[in-house]
Amino acid sequence: MRLNIILGLILVGMLPALAGCAKTVANKPRSSPRIVSTDPSATQILLQIGAAKTIVGVSPWDKPLLPLSLRHVPVVGGYVHLDEELVVQLAPTALILQQSPQRIAPGIISMAKQNGIRIVNIRINTFRQLFATTRTLGSISGCQKQAAAAITKLKSELNILAHSRPQKPPRVVYIISTEPIMVVGADNFMDQEITLAGGTNVAERCGDGFPTITRETLVRLNPQVLLISKPGEPVASGPQDPRLLPWLKLPIAAASHKRVDLITWPRAQMLTLHVYHLIRRLRNCMDAAPNPGGSQ
């Protein structure tokens, strides 16, 4: 059960209640910022705004995604097992969490208070929250300018995407886990990514977040493009790839037109400032001519 909670937090994001996004304490950062990040998206954003040097502690999920120069950074734990002693030793100026405020353990709050650590509780489930979080992370890492520049860049990139949407967007289903089938539903950043990539997420009607559906529902939705997220896995070897075969046998338009693709980008299930590149890839999957097998 606890595993479930961890995973729910990582993959699905938080309860959809908090619209307040990033909550920061208006303290002046000390001389040089030292940041412990327990959230993989936040770590990626810090790297992307050039704040790599400020990262002094990460979560276990960050490890494989860190550049070589940061592989030595200690792991402090994640949402459940935060190694408070290690956090205190690292003497960070800020501790980044992604948790609903009620769920932050009182011990962590008092530990942070005693040691002068600012708790920065972020929320990244929509593009708007991405911008707000980036600004917050910019301010705590002293990289405000880079953050602002990155936001401007991403906004203009997204603008281009929005203006080049195809006339007839294809019906898309984006699978994030295969047995059982969990799809991208309504009201989350991956749904927004599909729209920006020029598709219509037909699984929006199945529910908010990441609902579980049956193959029967998938057949009824009859997507023209079927995307299967396998972050970090090898790229599809072609239409005979065993990860694609069962889907190509389904009686759906995507299978008959061979528009079934694996999305293997390691950060495909996170929202970061590099989302533009991901969306471009998704768009390739959608408006390319019938494309057997992998797109990457």
């Binding site: 595993l3 494989p64 886990s177």
Partner: peptide
Amino acid sequence: VMLLNNLVPYGARTDILNYMFGYISEG
């Protein structure tokens, strides 16, 4: 299971969780 869970690559953990609950698939 708890030990291996810490070694599982990011993204694969839902597969395990779903597996642990048991699931009958049309596939």
